[in-house]
Simulated scan of single mutants.
Amino acid sequence: MYVLLYTILAGLAILPLVLYLRNPYFTQDLRYTVTCILLGLRINRIKRSKPFYSMLDCFLDKVKKHPNKQFIVFEKSSYTYRDVDKQSNKLARALSQHASVKEGDTVALLMGNEPMYVFIWLALAKLGCTAALLNYNIRSKSLLHCFTCCGTNVLLAASELRGAVEE
């Protein structure tokens, strides 16, 4: 009886060594699996508290938790979560008042890689609009085709892309 028990315990003691020798990445795989399971549990907890948890909800939660933490670093400037939230609120107000953008509208966005892109995208999300993100490298007929396909009558373009829009 004791021999069987000692054999089982010895086998269990040697098992991690055998697993490591046969698969040297076993511990990393196990750590990754545990991380994925914990992340899944966290997502389920969020889904129970908020049935629809959008990117905007995630951003607003981050603004509450870390208002002074850097969110965007671009060239020589940086923006905190609070800065981005304030800028997107100003843009949302301006879009709703001056461009007559309202909930449910689709707005085409033609911009390069810059902070204003994020500000406008968040502003549109706050207004309940869909953003049709257009490739800023396209021109003339391709741009017109993309614009008409997205079913919008509002185009927000960066000032440096004014020539592409007017062609």
Rank of each mutant, 00 (worst) to 15 (best):
M1F: 04
V3N: 07
V3M: 10
L9C: 12
G11I: 01
A13K: 10
I14G: 14
P24M: 08
P24A: 03
L39V: 05
L41C: 11
R45P: 06
S49K: 15
S49W: 04
S49V: 07
S49F: 04
K50N: 06
P51F: 01
D57Q: 10
L60E: 11
V63F: 04
K64T: 03
Q70G: 02
I72L: 07
S78M: 03
Y81M: 00
Y81N: 01
R82F: 12
D83E: 13
V84H: 05
N89P: 05
N89V: 10
K90Q: 12
L91K: 01
L91Q: 01
A92Q: 03
R93S: 08
A94G: 04
A94T: 02
L95G: 00
V101P: 07
K102D: 02
K102Q: 05
K102T: 10
K102P: 02
E103N: 10
E103K: 15
T106G: 04
L110H: 13
G112E: 07
E114L: 02
P115N: 03
F119C: 00
L124F: 11
A125H: 14
A125W: 14
A125T: 12
K126P: 02
L127H: 06
A131Q: 09
L134D: 05
S140H: 13
S142K: 11
L143M: 12
C150V: 05
L155P: 09
S159H: 03
S159M: 01
E167R: 15
E167P: 13
